[in-house]
Amino acid sequence: MASLLEFIKEKHRTTPLWIKALAPVLLLGGLAVFAVTGAVTAFVITAWLGQPIPVLGFDQTVKQPIAFPHTIHAGTGLFPSTGLPGQFIDGLEMDCTFCHRTVTSQANAGVPPVALCSYCHKVIGPEENPELAKLRKAAGLTEEDPSPINWKRVHRLPDHVRFVHEPHIRYLTQHPSEIRNAAPGVNQLSEALPSQVCSTCHGDVASMLEVKQVEALKMGQCVDCHRENEAPTDCTVCHH
């Protein structure tokens, strides 16, 4: 028995040096390789799925100069007021195209001029609402000098992409089955309203207190949708 133990000890003592020396290096090297591979794989997978990692703007809200609630303007139900904490206001169920007027005819959906806001807010809304006070100032309804509202852009495509709203709205209103994230029942309609279409890319804006980008709007997404609907996928359709 003792001799066997001796034998094992001896055997252990003569473990080749290269194995001993290699072990920690292999361990560290293996970890490094694993980390690099992991990073590359993550990059490739996100590229494949077209889903960026939720940082740098995606899935995040933007602080606007005036806390404009899409909820109160477009939603249904009771919503908290952004300017007066504790107060609740009934949703107005306004149509998207009431403010974004060029969406059915042009490339840009269009941010309404402040005059359009002040048309209602000259009378509607209490004086003490600080957010409305900013709007009224901007619209020149107060004594102070008017200044333009510097709205922050939420959905921005890269400069080399030419996206035109008009044909997309046109197509989806005629093919409601293709609309995504829509309110129940919309997909069964034979023809949809332009405002029922927006949710496909922008999500349910009516329920967002602060608008955020819910879809990645990466090229893969555009291309997939174009393929599914037999829309042209030639590069020049969007890039020129």
Partner: peptide
């Protein structure tokens, strides 16, 4: 140059 990007086909 490497074939990696399936998303855009």
């Amino acid at each position: 140059y490497a074939p990696y990007d399936f998303a855009r086909g």
